Amino acid sequence: MNFYEYQVFSQTLETFKWPIVIILGILITIYRSKKEKEKERVISSERLLDHIVNDNVEGVKYCLKNDLCPVNPRTVSGESAVELAILKENKYILAYLIKYGAAVTAREVKVAHLVRNYEIIDLIKQGTYLEVILEYERGATA
């Protein structure tokens, strides 16, 4: 770069210094915001999975109803929230997961058959999650 090119570059940089600083500030803010959201998503996923493992129907219901957790996160070893609910044989948690949008995959249907819980198999095949939720809510208020 010769002296003239350097001078032109220096003047251009001086002219656009503040817009460049502002753009960099915006990009840094966006990056930090994305990192924070990712961190919050991981924490909320862990919270939901903990509620499932501990058979805490009210905790699952609260997280999903208030949109505090993703509906079907996975554990570190790859099990989905639906799969955990099936393995825990908790039809109420499974019903709430389905109500709030968790899709039951063929793998999870296979797990339900391996567990041999026919109530859960019927819930999945017949889509009776609303009846199961109603049963839970009647029992929870009794």
Rank of each mutant, 00 (worst) to 15 (best):
I20S: 13
I23A: 07
S45H: 05
L27G: 01
N66T: 03
L24T: 10
S44F: 04
E36T: 01
L64T: 05
L48W: 10
R47W: 02
S33W: 06
E40H: 14
V42F: 14
I26N: 10
V42G: 05
E46I: 04
I23M: 06
K61L: 08
C63T: 01
L64F: 02
G25K: 09
R47D: 10
D67P: 02
G25S: 14
K37N: 13
V53T: 06
I30W: 10
E36Q: 11
N66S: 00
L27R: 01
L27P: 01
V60F: 06
S44M: 00
E40T: 07
R32W: 01
R41H: 00
C63P: 01
C63H: 00
F16L: 08
K39D: 06
V53S: 07
S33V: 05
I28H: 09
V21C: 08
K37F: 09
I23H: 00
V21S: 11
L24S: 15
E58R: 00
K34M: 15
R32L: 08
I43M: 09
E40A: 13
V60M: 05
K39H: 05
E46A: 02
E46G: 07
K17H: 13
V53R: 14
I20H: 08
E40Q: 14
S45N: 01
W18S: 13
